[in-house]
Amino acid sequence: MQVSRRKFSLGCGALTLSFLVQSEFKLLTPENAKAQNIPFQNLTQDQALLIDILGDAIVPGANAAGLSHFIDHQLSANDKDNLLILRYLRVNPPFNDFYLSALTACETAIEKRYNKKITDLSEAELSEFIPLIMQNNPEGWLNAPPAAFFYFVLRSDAIDVTYGTRAGFDTLDIPYMAHIEPPRNLGIKS
């Protein structure tokens, strides 16, 4: 599969991202984007893995819901249409610096403490690491927003993709009752 470019367009009043896949644009949910292995535009493969593993440990289900594809997609969104929770939290767009510096700090902190990459952490190690970042900057967490703030932001993004959609409401057995149905794909087109 070759992705040569993507663009933003407005459909049904909602921001949509389109990937050109084999010269055709298709709509994708974040989980479909993940399943189809759509290449990232802003994140490296390692950063995306970190988001998915840590995000899923905080909010189970976030990985399958396509958390890293959602964040990657939104890092390309224009400031006015950005859907990341960060815009509420007194951080001005663009948000790349925030995520990229926090992810680097997180990678370094994990390596310092466990001498491993996040992919090699055991469940027990991961559950030990999360409360650490909730409180303080662990050793190696440098040149980045405070770890506790990053935890809050990643947790909120993960709750958005996991529970903030019709599929997420269904999991919780809550009626969605939309007046105007949002795009199922959270705006991601492929």
Partner: peptide, 23 residues
């Protein structure tokens, strides 16, 4: 009215996006 999509995520597009305000 058609832009008012029922989603807490999409709702963020309605928020202030003029000049950033320093707080």
């Amino acid at each position: 009215l058609n832009d008012l999509v029922s989603s807490q995520i999409q709702a963020r597009r309605l928020k202030w996006s003029g000049d950033p305000v320093e707080e």
